[in-house]
Structure formats: C-alpha cells, structure tokens
Amino acid sequence: MGTTQLEAVQEPKYWHLKTVLNDALDSEFEVGEILPNERDLAARFGVARATLRQALEQLELEGRLQRRRGVGTTVAPPRMGVAVGPTTNAWPGAGRDSWNTIGCVEAPAPAPVAALLGTGPDDAVHTIRRERVMQGQSVATELLYVPPASVPNLSGLLTPATHAQAVLRELHTLELDGDDRAVELGSARAEDAKQLDRLPGAPVLVLTTRYYAGGRVAAASVATYRADTCRLTFGDSGAVEVTHHQPESRQAS
C-alpha cells in the first residue's frame, strides 16, 4: 500500500517537543513544581526558544502547565471532575445547586438561544449570570435565559439585588418535564474569559441545556467551563479519577 498524503506530513518540531516535555512532566516533576526557565529548557532539549514556547503554550492549553504571574510556569494538577449529570429533574437554583448567582438583566437573547426559546430577536428575556467555584477557583460561568412567558407572575418592583432570585422562585413553581443537554468545544468570550481568569479565545467546554415545562422550552442555559482544568462527567457513577504518573522516588520523598 502506498504512503497516504496524511502519513507523508512531517510532525512539527514543537509538537514532538511537546510529547517529550509531557513525558518529562510525568517522570521528573511534581504537581506545583516550577519548571526551569526557557533558556535552560531550550538548551536541554536542543531547540530554539520559539519552538519551546510553542510546546509550552500547547501544554498549557491541554491543562498540563499553568503560568502564574510572579511565580513562573508550574506543573498543573489533574483536571477536576465536574459532574453535570445525570439529570436531577430540578430547576437551576433548586435543591443542592452548586452555582452562585451574580446578577440578572433583561435583554434580548443571542440568536441561537432565542431560537431555542422560540422568542423574537428583539424580545427581552430575563438573563441570570451565575458562577461555579470549586477548590476556591472559578471553573465555570453560566447564562440562564428565562422568557417572561415562563414567569408571568413576576412582580414589577424588582431591584438588581432581588431580580435573579425572584425569577428563580417563579421558575420553580412550574412543573419541570425534563431537560436535554449538548456539550461542545468553544472559545472563551471576553466577559467569560475575565471571570474565568483566562485569555479571550482560550478553549472552553460549552454546555447548553434546555428545560421543558408545559410541553415547551421554558428556559435555556449556556454554561462555559474552563477546558484546561475541568472534565465534565455524566452518569450515576460520578467523576472518574485521572492522575498523572509520578516517579516513586518523588512520591516517597
């Protein structure tokens, strides 16, 4: 069989270096340990500093490294498992909800969300911003969109401090028929990136959920998770533990 075009493509030097560095992280370094400076690393592996930076940036995107201001580049801990299922047949903000409410505004939903809700492009909906924190770190931000038709008895006397809770209380009076979810890889928008302490355009996991009541979509949420620190887990068994190999001599020390 002849060589295919894909097989003929040469692996970029930085990608090969990334693989070598990844093995070194497993065998020589502990979580939280600071890596040598770029000059020393480039000399050790016999590459240009530009090639080294590309490899380090890729490892950071994959969650193996963290760059901390005033500290340097450190070995990142394994991604934390964030449970997003199974469905609990509960509205956002009800029961043992793990999100913190930040605020609420009335504004038209983005076109894809408006299509999910069945609202017009200029129809204002209640938009609740929430945040999820784990181990003292913001790992996700969420926008929960609730059309006025889902909360018709909402009082008109709302303040910025009471708006979100009032919308959630009204939403909880509806009988939830169920929900469906979809997850995809995306890029962090400027506002989400700031809240998640990431650069705009950083890779994120986007979880979109539709909530049904009375035979229609009563609310929709778009949750943005840090792809470098999170593994979304589904099912009854909860998070699957994934750890990186650590050399025995270091584990014993």
Rank of each mutant, 00 (worst) to 15 (best):
46 G>N: 11
48 A>Y: 14
49 R>P: 14
49 R>C: 12
50 A>C: 12
53 R>K: 12
54 Q>L: 15
55 A>F: 04
59 L>P: 05
59 L>E: 04
59 L>V: 07
60 E>W: 14
61 L>K: 15
62 E>I: 07
62 E>N: 14
63 G>R: 10
63 G>V: 06
66 Q>C: 13
67 R>H: 15
69 R>I: 11
70 G>Q: 00
72 G>T: 05
73 T>K: 13
73 T>P: 11
74 T>Q: 10
75 V>Y: 02
78 P>T: 02
82 V>A: 07
82 V>G: 06
85 G>D: 05
85 G>Q: 10
89 N>F: 13
89 N>D: 10
90 A>R: 06
92 P>L: 04
92 P>W: 01
96 R>D: 02
96 R>V: 03
97 D>G: 02
99 W>V: 02
100 N>W: 14
100 N>H: 15
101 T>W: 13
102 I>D: 08
102 I>A: 12
104 C>R: 05
105 V>G: 03
106 E>F: 07
106 E>P: 11
107 A>E: 13
108 P>K: 00
109 A>V: 07
109 A>W: 05
110 P>R: 03
110 P>E: 01
111 A>P: 09
113 V>W: 07
114 A>K: 06
114 A>N: 06
114 A>C: 06
115 A>S: 12
115 A>V: 09
116 L>K: 08
117 L>R: 05
120 G>A: 15
120 G>S: 12
120 G>W: 10
121 P>W: 14
121 P>L: 15
121 P>A: 14
122 D>N: 15
122 D>F: 15
124 A>E: 10
127 T>I: 11
127 T>S: 09
128 I>V: 08
129 R>M: 10
129 R>Y: 12
130 R>G: 00
133 V>M: 08
137 Q>K: 07
139 V>F: 00
141 T>Q: 07
142 E>W: 04
143 L>M: 15
143 L>E: 14
144 L>F: 09
145 Y>G: 00
145 Y>H: 00
146 V>T: 05
147 P>C: 04
147 P>N: 02
148 P>F: 06
150 S>M: 02
150 S>D: 03
151 V>S: 05
152 P>Q: 03
152 P>H: 05
153 N>I: 13
153 N>G: 12
